[in-house]
């Protein structure tokens, strides 16, 4: 196991001002009794609402925060205590906060990492060549980072995090704010990295497209602990969120009434009908068609966003 967390907890003590001088101590359990094991070569979606304990736990995994309870081993090391050794085994991409040198060409940031991680020259050259090719950075190596677009910078950050061949790559919102093409490049790159190099990837994101396209296993963190851990498809089934039938009627009218479905929205002649995932869609469509004049129909499956929202609220 590359990441092994048992009953991992993190408690913060906050001092709240309650009067002019008085302060009250309040403890906040950001992470409580979190259990997680991640095997080598997994590509894990790590999701949850803001403030659920995602980043607190990731900070513990990366050796930035010390746990207040439980045990944690990452790559066989004890984070914090063996911070430097751990740093050699992990790569971290902080999403919006770049770790590249703002005013210097991309190439210079890579060269600094070459030294800091003491990457053997041959391996450095090989990795740099490979990532530059895969991520299309060749023309950008001599461009100062400040002149790169968000997507280009993200590709630079990815390369920077991988030059030392880490076993685990942590990504915090790697596709936020990127255009469609950049998103695709990043996703394809991650899938290939995981497949070809066997790099374990822990992906934190709000973009559920990322999860759907990349991750077989999803861990949902809520209220500081694991709310769901398993396959993405099973998560969908477990919640069994409603599907939606969208019908275009011949003319606008009041909400239709059919057994087994409820209208959630009406917009002119178009109406949205929610029905249970396990119900027969064909029957529902013929029920609507027998009562109203239908022009067009389409069915929308519950997407992961609905599923997760459902999970959070339950």
């Amino acid at each position: 196991m590359l990441i092994e967390a048992e009953n991992l907890s993190k408690t913060y003590t906050l001092r709240k001002k309650t009067g002019r001088l008085k302060r009250e101590r309040a403890t906040v359990e950001a992470v409580r009794e979190l259990n997680l094991s991640v095997a080598e070569g997994e590509l894990l979606g790590y999701i949850g609402p803001n403030g659920a304990g995602k980043s607190t736990s990731i900070k513990m995994f990366t050796g930035i925060l010390s746990p207040s309870g439980g045990t944690l081993r990452v790559a066989g090391l004890e984070p914090i205590r063996e911070r430097k050794q751990l740093a050699r085994r992990i790569g971290v991409v902080f999403g919006q906060r770049t770790t590249l040198w703002w005013d210097l060409p991309l190439r210079d940031s890579f060269a600094l990492l070459h030294r800091m991680y003491a990457i053997p020259d041959a391996r450095y050259a090989e990795n740099l060549k490979r990532y530059v090719e895969l991520l299309g950075l060749a023309e950008l190596l001599d461009t100062p980072v400040r002149q790169l677009s968000l997507g280009q910078r993200m590709r630079g950050d990815l390369t920077a995090a991988l030059l030392h061949d880490p076993s685990i790559l942590y990504l915090d919102e790697p596709t936020i704010g990127l255009d469609v093409t950049s998103k695709m490049v990043v996703r394809e790159f991650l899938a290939e990295l995981n497949r070809e190099r066997g790099t374990t990837i822990v992906l934190t994101t709000h973009d559920l497209d990322d999860i759907e396209r990349l991750c077989r296993r999803v861990v949902v963190i809520d209220h500081g602990t694991v709310a769901y851990d398993g396959e993405l498809s099973a998560l969908r089934n477990r919640i069994a969120a409603d599907r939606t039938l969208v019908v275009d009627l011949a003319r606008p009218g009041p909400a239709v009434t059919v057994p087994g479905a409820t209208v959630t929205r009406v917009d002119g002649p178009r109406q949205w009908l929610a029905f249970p995932a396990e119900a027969n869609a064909a029957e529902l469509i013929s029920a609507v068609a027998s009562r109203y004049e239908l022009v067009d129909v389409s069915i929308r499956e519950a997407d992961i966003e609905d599923v997760v929202r459902e999970l959070y609220s339950s």
Binding site: G63, I64, K84, A87, F94, R97, T99, M116
Partner: peptide
């Protein structure tokens, strides 16, 4: 405050 200190902590130096 900007959250960039963490980047220094995940380097092996």
């Amino acid at each position: 405050r900007m959250g960039t200190f963490d980047a220094l902590l995940v380097r092996p130096v």
